[in-house]
Design a protein around this nucleic acid. Structure first.
Length: 263
DNA sequence: AACGTCTACAACCGCGTCAAA
DNA sequence: GTTTGACGCGGTTGTAGACGT
């Protein structure tokens, strides 16, 4: 009986796996220099390698290509990665497009081993980080709450407590701490660049604005946050208003907000 | 010195996409 | 329109070397 479905990329029986030897690298390098890239499926056979075509492709792209930049990721490159990841997510190949000589695999590994940990340590600050009192902490997932319509047609979240800052879930004090951590961790400039934000008004104040513009939506115990332009905030306006012109900008802002608000 | 744990990164795997048949 | 094969991407695993006990 013929087995339907996707055929394996290559016949794995008898093929070598694991680390590449210098000899194999040399064979692959010479073959591609002579014949060019492509036809990965037939390459191992033609080159005389006992490897899967996929493995050859990966080895060439991630390690043997002459235009690869080996060595540590520079601070500038790291900043680019952080910025692009905030807006693109785990689109490693797209991020790699902006970093000549770096591969998607290299960036992915760097993110997983270095940057994700940095961000984790930011989200779970060191002991010197003063946590605000529990009621002023970042809100956990809340149970479903009804929204109140404002006169201007916008909505405000159901107040948890009287203070408007508590309504918004993050107090100014907490925001200051977050912003301090952003600066300490060298992430603030990246955020500013992403936001394309005029920072003249002071960081805490600006972030407060951002909070004020946030639309809270409570459904099924889930909270979602989006950033809206001034027009959407029910006639409320602020100094140094933060207005996003395009979907792309909104998406970037939302990415940062989601990051800030994530548990 | 021996052993266990952690970290970085190379390599593998499965799946989606796309073009050719 | 469907099937097939190749390629590329992103998630995951494996492992060598560093580090700690």
């Amino acid at each position: 009986m013929i087995k339907m479905g996707r055929a394996p990329c290559c016949e794995k029986v008898g093929l070598k796996r694991g680390r590449w030897t210098e000899e194999e690298d040399e064979i692959l390098r010479k073959y591609i220099e002579a014949n060019g890239e492509g036809s990965w499926r037939s390459l191992p056979k033609n080159a005389g390698l006992l490897r899967c075509g996929k493995s050859c492709r990966l080895r060439w792209i991630n390690y043997l290509r002459s235009d690869l930049k080996r060595g540590n990721i520079s601070p500038k490159e790291e900043e680019i990665i952080v910025n692009l990841h905030a807006s693109l997510g785990n689109k490693w190949s797209l991020i790699a497009d902006h970093l000549p000589g770096r591969t998607d695999n290299e960036i992915k590994n760097y993110w997983n081993s270095h940057l994700s940990r940095k961000i984790y340590s930011f989200r779970h600050p060191n002991p010197n980080f003063i946590l605000p009192p529990p009621e002023y902490s970042k809100p956990k997932k809340r149970t479903a709450a009804k929204e109140n319509k404002t006169a201007g047609g916008g909505t405000v979240p159901n107040p948890v407590q009287e203070s408007s800052s508590v309504e918004l879930g993050i107090t100014n004090l907490c925001l200051d701490d977050i912003l301090e951590q952003l600066e300490v961790n060298g992430i603030w400039n990246s955020c500013m660049e992403l936001l394309d934000w005029d920072n003249n008004g002071g960081t805490a104040g600006s972030c407060g604005q951002l909070e004020e513009n946030r639309d809270h939506d409570f459904n099924n115990g889930q909270e979602s946050s989006t950033v809206r332009s001034d027009d959407d905030v029910g006639g409320v306006s602020f100094e140094n208003e933060l207005i996003m012109e395009s979907d792309d900008e909104i998406e970037k802002h939302n990415a940062i907000l989601a990051w800030l608000m994530s548990p």
